[in-house]
Amino acid sequence: MSDADNTTQTPHFSDYRRAMVDPADGGPKFRQKHFLAIEGMDPIAIQYLLDKADHYADFNRQPLKHSDLGRGLTQINMFFENSTRTLMSFDIAGKRLGLNVSSFTASTSSLKKGETLLDTTTTLDAMRPDVVVLRHSESGAVAQLAEHLNCGIINAGDGTHEHPTQALLDALTIRRTRGHIHGLTVTICGDIKHSRVARSNIHLLNAMGAKVRVIGPESLIPDEIDRMGVEVFYTMEEGLKGSDIVMMLRIQKERIENINSLSLDTYHKHWGLTPERLNLANEGAHVMHPGPMNRGLEIASMVADDPVRSLITLQVEMGVAARMAVIDALTEPTRALAAQSS
């Protein structure tokens, strides 16, 4: 094929591979010890996780969904912030891979008795887990704790920083529905300022070659967000035009009520996703939401329950598969070591 032919095609991200940086074919494709953030991740590693997750998505649709892959390994879910669905998703993912899973939330730990966060974590580290899933309400807390732990850490959300497994499951959902991520226009709507889901998704979608837009009221879109590689819109009417995927974010009611110029009614009126607004997007555009939803605030029930366009339940299903892929990838070195010694 001549160069002239090439110019008509949009280059795939793998066309940009650099010989000195990227692993040679056949080498290890995932070389991270932890899974803390999407920012800075190699697109090849993301691709590797998505391929693995794709496999687990099919695996999870079998009648018997159990693998002995992680037999003998221990997973601890440490949740220093309330969560039900993410905790459950990690719990199921670990158990389906055959790991021994234990979970605790801050309310049951000795943190309440005045122990420092670092002490609690080192105590749990002494119990020799192989994977630790951490969620914390402060940005950066998970990365800080990872420095003091000897096992693989998975970030299950830290403050308003990142929620990398959510981005991975969203990407998997898009890839399974649309066949590819590259070239799609994905629009993220809502409280971008306080959303870790938005940050992780912006990084991942950009790395995989999608076009990312954000929509929201001015007070919920931080300054200089465009430097993260997004196009900024302040009205749904402008931003939705030409979108292939519309990703709604959960709105915390207190945050809206704290802004003088906004009320819950005006928010729904201007930024709520209604069927009419969705029609502004490209034909066949899909709707996503990380949950839990506020029906009638950021999303209308008509949209959320649309069997064709809403991917919300598929996202929950893909959540287990994506988390299985991450646990699988992080325990790979340990499993290789175990296989060598036996």
Partner: peptide, 16 residues
């Protein structure tokens, strides 16, 4: 400081 670094780190920024 409000801006790209604060955005990426998910930290609340003070106005420039």
């Amino acid at each position: 400081l409000a801006g790209d670094t604060a955005n990426r780190m998910g930290l609340e920024g003070i106005a420039v």
